[in-house]
């Protein structure tokens, strides 16, 4: 008999109002509480333990101790809140964020060996819920969001290499993009960088795609530029990059008229340029 798809297994457990943990292949685990998903772990994404460690609020040892203290079926999250490591709001957001991040990479449509362990619970306890359809819907929405930022998966698994020189005169970066560019060493992939920075893997992937859309990172084979004309994409903050360029008058160099860093002449909608082209055309026609 063919094994059921992962989606079917997930939905089935929700229908049975199961409580326990579902091991998904070798990559991760989905925790259920009365049919709702309370937490998801995935080997490729940083879990709550990593995020807490990277935040600097608590050491890796501290996390381990809290985990031991909570014991099986305990509420490690409540323990951390009690100790003042983080607030309840932060704990809920931490669990929610780690869960969505892991779900994005783990719950892809596939057939995989699964094993359900009844009654098993995560050491953090239950702090936020997702219903299964909602969780799968959010994963799909996030996939679409990535596509909108930069419609190619070519950079997702490649080492991130920032450009030595940027095409425009200045660039606008988000905080995560700044951290990414500093940490990028041309060997680490987005997911590896996420782990290093203690940031969710999805946010990192999105930031890399936005950097690609803004033309700030090397693309594999330079033919990978987007086909459509760059209208301001709603998702990429560095989009205004191109706008100030025409304002910045090129510094006249001894080599001739102003040239951009790429060696191409400045092209813009300036009326004088258009007039020059018209005069040139007229002159050529007159020959």
């Amino acid at each position: 008999m063919a094994a059921p798809t992962l989606d079917a297994v997930l939905t089935g457990l929700a229908k049975d109002e199961a409580t326990g943990s579902l091991r998904v292949g070798k990559e991760g685990t989905v925790y259920y509480d009365h049919g709702r998903v309370s937490y998801v772990e995935c080997a490729t994404t940083p879990g709550v333990e990593d995020l807490l460690g990277a935040s600097g609020r608590i050491s890796a040892n501290g996390v381990r101790r809290a985990r031991q203290q909570a014991g099986p079926g305990g509420d490690g999250g409540a323990l951390l809140v009690e100790k003042g490591v983080l607030s309840r709001g932060e704990l809920e957001f931490c669990a929610l964020s780690a869960t969505l991040d892991a779900a994005f990479f783990l719950l892809t449509p596939k057939t995989v060996r699964t094993r359900f362990k009844d009654g098993d619970a995560h050491w953090l306890g239950v702090h936020w819920f997702f219903d299964v359809p909602g969780l799968l819907r959010e994963c799909a929405r996030r996939r679409a969001r990535l596509e909108r930022a930069w419609p190619s998966a070519e950079l997702d698994a490649c080492p991130v290499t920032p450009l030595r020189r940027i095409p425009g005169s200045h660039a606008l970066l988000s905080r995560l993009q700044w951290e990414l560019l500093l940490a990028a060493d041309s060997t680490a992939t987005p997911v590896e960088l996420a782990r290093r920075l203690g940031r969710p893997a999805y946010s990192t992937l999105l930031a890399v795609r936005e950097l690609a859309a803004a033309g700030l990172v090397e693309k594999a084979g330079h033919a990978a530029l987007p086909k459509r004309t760059p209208k301001p994409p709603p998702a990429s903050p560095p989009a205004p990059l191109a706008a100030p360029v025409p304002l910045a008058a090129p510094v006249p160099s001894p080599g001739g008229p102003g040239r951009s860093a790429s060696g191409l002449p400045w092209v813009n909608g300036d009326a004088t340029d258009v007039n020059l082209l018209l005069r040139l055309r007229d002159a050529l026609e007159a020959l």
């Binding site: 995020l51 935040s55 932060e90 957001f93 931490c94 940031r199 969710p200």
Partner: peptide
């Protein structure tokens, strides 16, 4: 600002 992602 949240401690590892955000803002919310």
């Amino acid at each position: 600002e949240m401690m590892f992602d955000g803002p919310l």
